[in-house]
């Protein structure tokens, strides 16, 4: 059975695509055959983050419309053997997505022996976002530690509860995970940001991880390498922890406490 995981948030710019890229890579590195689908039709981005933008020939909409088959459209990742990317169309809009079409693509991926399918949702609560979550078995809700992001995540959780197939058919509800991203422990300490505990208390969803705010993310995007590949980066370690927790291994939370820079660090600088 292919497990369908939607990465969603409601609000834009919180780190959905970064998370989709790193989660799918992390699962593939663990040996699972994984596909990651960009649902942001018209504003495609995942291909850039994955560094495969020059290899896009066919896209999700071509497959939905039967203009290409899945084998033609799936792009093999340059780093991982087990990872395939299905890009979004840049020239169409989200109305081109149909429920039947998306279902067909997911069924076919299952036949091809995929273990996980990651759906990278667009921002908003319109068609694209709803299509991305319709067939989800699990949802990773990405939220930044600030009130408007939390409110939007709450809204998307409500939509998940009412519009997902699992909800419509009265099956076991979609399994929800909360991922807090762009977390800056110092700003939390200074009272400028919500703490991850506040976010979790507001959303009442089990926490799967906290990703620290870091310049590494921007650098990784520019290079077209998922952040989880970065060497000696807190972000990469945090995403690896998320993968471990997702696979039900115990990991303590890291990068959530602010450590005052030591004397040497203050004298010699450094990050």
């Amino acid at each position: 059975m292919a497990r369908v995981i939607v990465v969603t948030s409601g609000k834009g710019g919180v780190g959905k695509t970064t998370t989709s890229a790193s989660i799918s890579t992390g699962l593939a590195l663990r040996g699972y055959k994984t596909a990651v689908i960009d649902f942001d039709v018209g504003l495609r981005n995942l291909d850039l983050i994955m560094g495969c933008e020059r290899r896009v020939v066919y896209d999700l909409i071509n497959v939905v419309n039967g203009e290409a088959n899945l084998h033609q459209a799936l792009i093999k990742d340059k780093h991982c053997e087990n990872l395939f990317i299905l890009p979004a169309s840049q020239t169409r809009d989200k109305d081109a997505l149909t429920e039947e079409g998306v279902e067909k693509v997911l069924k076919e991926l299952e036949h091809m022996g995929f273990d996980y399918v990651i759906c990278d949702s667009p921002a908003g609560i319109e068609r694209g976002a709803v299509m991305a979550l319709t067939f989800a078995d699990e949802a990773i809700v990405v939220s930044n530690p600030e009130v408007s992001s939390v409110r939007d995540s709450d809204r998307i959780l409500g939509i998940l509860q009412s519009k997902s197939r699992r909800a419509m058919e009265g099956r076991e509800p979609v399994k929800e995970h909360l991922l807090v991203t762009r977390y800056a422990p110092k700003r939390v300490e200074d009272g400028e940001m919500l703490s991850y505990k506040d976010v979790q208390e507001l959303l009442r969803v089990p926490l799967i991880g906290v990703i620290p705010e870091s310049d590494d993310v921007l650098q990784a995007s520019n290079q077209g390498t998922p952040a989880i590949h970065l060497k000696d980066s807190d972000v990469a370690t945090a995403y690896q922890d998320v993968i471990a927790r997702f696979l039900e291994e115990e990991r303590p939370l890291r990068f959530v406490n602010y450590e005052k820079p030591g004397l040497l660090k203050r004298i010699f600088g450094g990050k």
């Binding site: 409110r151 709450d154 809204r155 959780l157 409500g158 939509i159 509860q161 509800p173 009442r204």
Partner: peptide, 8 residues
């Protein structure tokens, strides 16, 4: 039984 979300 489940949390009621924003917009519901």
């Amino acid at each position: 039984e489940r949390p009621l979300r924003s917009g519901q």
